[in-house]
Each structure stands twice: as structure tokens, then as C-alpha cells.
Design a protein around this nucleic acid. Sequence first.
RNA 1: GUGGGAUUAGCUCAGCUGGUUAGAGCGCCAGGUUGUGGCCCUGGAGGUCAUGGGUUCGAACCCCACAUCUCACCCCA
Length: 413
Amino acid sequence: MIQKIKGTMDILPDRTPLFRYIEGIMREEAAKYGFGEIRTPTFENTELFVRGVGNTTDVVQKEMYTFNDRDENRSISLRPEGTASVVRAVIENGKCSDAMPLKYYYIISCFRHEAPQAGRSREFFQFGTEMFGSESPAADATSIALAASVIKRLGLDNVKLHINSIGCKECRPKYRGALTKYYGEHESELCDTCKKRLVSNPLRLLDCKNRECANLAKDAPRTVDYLCDNCREHFESLKKYLDGMGVEYTVDSSIVRGLDYYTKTVFEFVAEGIAAQSTVCGGGRYDGLVEELGGPALPGIGFAMGITRIILAMEQLGKDKIEECKPKLYIASMGEAASLRALSIVEKLRREGIWAECDVVGRSLKAQMKYANKLGADYTLIIGDFELESGKAQLRDMRASEQREVELDNFTI
RNA sequence: GUGGGAUUAGCUCAGCUGGUUAGAGCGCCAGGUUGUGGCCCUGGAGGUCAUGGGUUCGAACCCCACAUCUCACCCCA
């Protein structure tokens, strides 16, 4: 047989209710916070992601699904994340002239060619938001509060918020310098990959899980000590907003995001007790991105929440069991005439909005009763030739195991 | 991309140092008398032992390759 592509998944009817439940909460919360849904194409010009996500990132360098368009021979890519497309759409649709802020959310699948493991697949689902046009930490706090609200409603008290500030164009180089200097003095103690990172991306040294490196990170210079006045004020103010809004957090100087566009605020919601991919939601501010992609100098902030990682966190708490809807009524029939009648009654009830089922495979009465039981039907109506003639039938209450006679043409359950 | 573990029925797994027709539980289907579910009992269907090579008189079992899953690194949601 032809198998599915590595790192993709089939989600069957026993699991889709959980996805719908989670996505439903995301939509409701987003709406409450004034975010409107935006839908953008699954694929875009490769250049959009190269410029938007950053051409030094692993995501762009080695994880994108990139191919040439059949008739125009241009390079297009499956989206590896959602932000770049939204920024593009906002610019392209002239939304930069609207009243600020602009608030969008989306629930999409993204694609990255990575080695699959727990909480990571090649096609993955995320809930994301983007908010444009406000430099104020109040905007950051609002976005974070929305994410926190979704997590709270899902009952994930094993998920904690970590925040940090990585500064702006002004202060980041200074911090970077201090960090390079500090780690340079301890280069011999670093793991091999960190030695490389020292040159390529020193910020990433901070969250290396290697024991030696993690020890060094404890005494490493912290971003918050190198922020320029503007960034420091912004961060301090953000904390006040979060305090005032009752959003709990811890400041975690090891948080660095891997996409190039982040500035100032960065944050992660981390699930405790999950082995590897424990970051359930990640986001931050990206003040230069809109301009980078050809729009006006519009600040922005957003986050992305991994739906399958959320499910992992829910599973850990045993909160992943979502009750499926059950048919209220099952009609068991015997004989062709009764089957015809069963289908017509079921169809009528369905049009009235009642959930009803009947036999469509030609099972025996006993087997139909078993099936009704398996479906979890509340009631079963039993009809055969005798009932068709008399116009009356037995309606069985499956839970109470009692039955009563009802009019075939006019009965209620 | 780099390592470790795994792959036997729809699902979860047994299968002794290679030895005839590969097993269990659950699930599915059908029965346990004439038109009534859940519990119990009986029976049945269902497997080219992931795939392709190799070693051997003989391979689910040993060797190689490949695929997928899984765990970790890397990176990220």
C-alpha cells in the first residue's frame, strides 16, 4: 500500500473532537480579545520567508518545503510559520492605513522538514495571533493575556509563562558583545555545538541543555542588564501590566527565540514535566518586520501555539478525553418495509435537528440492539411488519431498560 | 542532518539457543431456538511476521539495505 508521508498524521473521528474542542476555545478567546480571523495561502513566494523569517535561521536554511512552480518556474514554499504571510497580507491589502491596532488570528497547518519526534511533526498545527501598530507594552500584555487565557481555559496548570526582553537594534549588539566576551573566556568549557554558536548565534548559547553550558549560562550576562533605556522601560512596564492583569510569569533570561525578527519582548509558555518539546507557545515582539517586508514602519507582536503540543500537555493531566456526541435515538428495523420506514423517520428527525440513527447494513434485530448500545443511543425504537400495521411500536429506554408503546407517527423521546 | 530503540492480526503484545499448518487478549462478525443491548459462553473471519536482498537443508528469529514509528541531539510551535 501507499503509506503516508513521514512526519504527517491522520486524525481519526475518535480524536477530532479534541481538536475541535481546543480550536473552539482558541477561536472564542481570540474573538473576546478582539482578534479577527485571517486566512492566507498555504504557500507563498520563497522570498517572503527568506526575508521574513530570516535567511540565517535553520527554518529557512534547511527545513522549508521549497519547489518550483510548474508554469512560471519561480520558487515557492509551503509556509513554515504564520507571521510572514500575515504581514504580507496586511501590507498587500492596504490595512496599514486602518485604525490601529490591527488584530488577527489564525489556525493553520505549517510545514517543516525536520526529524519527527514527540511534539514535532513535518506538518503541524498552530494557533497564532498578530497585533500591529502599537509599540506600547499594553499590546504585549494583551497578546500574552490572550495566550494565557486559552491555556487557563484548557485547564493546563502545568504550563507556566516565561518572559524576557532581548532588546532592540540599539542594545542587542552591546549585549551580544558582552555575551561573546564572556563565553569567549570560557570557550574550552563549551560543548562542540556551542563553540560554533559562539560565532554564528551567541544568543543561542544561553539555552543549551548540555550540563557544562547550562552552568556557564547561570553566570552569563543577562539581556535585561544591557537593555537601552527605552527597552528597559518597556520591559518594566510590561511586567506592571501583567501584574495588573493578574497574569503570572517568571523572568527567564535564557529565553531567546530562534527566528530573526524578534525584538524586545519574547516569551514562552512551557509545560512542566514534558520531556523534549515542552514549549507549548512561543512569541514576541517584531518591530522591524513590517518594514523589512516592504510596508511602513509598523510595530508588531504575536505568538504561535502548537496544537499538538497543547494536546501533549493535556494528556499529561489526563484532560484529553472529550466526550463525543451520541445519538439520542436508534431505530431497529426488521424487513425491507420497516427499513424503509426507519430511514424515513430518521431523516425526518434529523431535519428537525434530532440526532437519530438506524440500520443501514441489514443486521439482525439482536445485532442492531448491540450496535445501538455501542453507539450509546439513549432510546431505541423497534419496528417490524406488525408495527407498520398497527401504527404502534416499542420505544426502549436504553439506560433504564424499560420500554413503552408509542404512536409511530407521533412520538416524543 | 546525526545517534539509540522498535516494526508479528484492526489495536496491545507473546513467540524458548533458527526447525512442520505463527499465538493470546481486546475489537469485529455470527450463534447461545421463534422479534430486544450491556454480563457470560461458543464459534468464525482476519497475518506475503514492514519491504527488498543475503546466509542456511530450513528464517518471524542471524546479516545487509531501505521505509516508517519512536526517543534524543540540532532547531522550533
